[in-house]
Design a protein around this nucleic acid. Structure first.
Lengths: 202, 202
DNA sequence: GCAAAATTGGACTTGCAGGTCCATTTTTTG
DNA sequence: CAAAAAATGGACCTGCAAGTCCAATTTTGC
């Protein structure tokens, strides 16, 4: 078999990615080196370049994909069933808890500055993550509309986009300042906008 | 005079900062080097380290401070007189224009990932920028309350915080995806929240 | 005008991190 | 079991960018 990975190979490759994820979360992408990853995973240079011929960039991209998947997973199952006010508030609590716990690490954000937003691979990962995230929110808003809790006149996609922007900004402010008050405000105001739309329906 | 700068010295120091600003905007902090700055400003290594004994970190910090000041300046005079719906929309247009023009450069954001958010100097710059920005917004909201356009019951600081988060997120999404729709949505929804609060007043 | 201080040029050093290479061992395949 | 392919260890190379050093020049203060 040409170019295939044995079970052992897959295991090693996986270990490298996992190790890279850990190292990057601990030290930050700016200072983390390949040797750090090797030390942690007890693998050698030749192994790393064997599984990631593209070198550091390719490894970072793999880590980015992993982290991106993690973002939505961590919001489940709540993100998937935003069909009552209660569900929305439970989801809000999950988001806040996740990012408060994460502290001032930003696995994903910093990763993209390093890889470069321009590289097609990196950009595709962010775009897809944001698209899915926003889609989930929009679906939740439509569910609330169907249930009659939010007026149909509301533009679900636009509202979802604004809410997503608020979350992104809240998180990035949390990263910069260590305070989660903006994330709190963005989520609460976002949900409040849905409730107010209900009473201020045109 | 010990440790003082002559007029010539100040000019050189200023040229270095200006050159660094330009280089960082063009190439991005991840790949820009001190030699790039020297080449552009026609200065020498010894000059750079003479005026920035702390080396690259100190220079980056100076650039960060410059860029931070720029952020609010670029929103003036609109940000300073948010006392009518019209003024709010003019300000919104200014913000959108500024960041659309900037494209996918993020002088400030990327800078902090390089310097490290932890270093006290860097963190202080962001915190102060955000504080002033939010203060301006809150002042604007209070002006609208005083004028009777927005109910007093609204928490100006919290609303300003949410709006600021939305802007931050909108910008960071613009940087990642090249699309300004989220920034648009965040601003419009943020202002809409003020208007809806008016009609949905408790 | 002259001594002291500030400014400047640019060659040189240094350390490090990414990447290459090849010999050796292990696993797969038939 | 034997040949081929995959996996592994780790020494080595290389380039680059930050930072050092010193000698030369200009400016300042008195």
């Amino acid at each position: 078999m040409r170019g295939s990975l044995t079970a052992k190979g897959q295991a090693t490759r996986g270990r490298i990615v996992q190790g890279a994820v850990a190292v990057l979360r601990e030290k930050g992408v700016a200072v983390a080196t390949l040797d750090d990853v090797l030390a942690r995973t007890r693998t050698s240079k030749s192994q790393l370049f064997h599984y990631f011929p593209g070198g550091k960039d390719e490894l970072l991209l793999a880590v980015a994909q992993f982290e991106a998947d993690q973002v939505l997973d961590d919001q489940q199952p709540h993100l998937g069933c935003l069909d009552s006010w209660d569900a929305w508030y439970r989801w809000r609590d999950t988001v806040i808890a996740r990012y408060e716990e994460q502290g001032d690490q930003c696995p994903l954000g910093s990763l993209f500055l390093q890889i470069g937003r321009n590289t097609p691979g990196a950009r595709a990962i962010v775009i897809e993550l944001l698209r899915q995230w926003q889609e989930h929110l929009a679906t939740g808003i439509r569910a609330m509309q169907t249930a009659g809790h939010v007026p149909i006149s509301l533009d679900a996609d636009r509202t979802a986009a604004a809410l997503l922007a608020g979350i992104q900004g809240g998180v990035s402010i949390l990263l910069s300042t260590g305070r989660s008050s903006h994330l709190h405000a963005a989520l609460d105001e976002g949900i409040m906008a849905l409730r107010n739309a209900a009473s201020a329906a045109i």
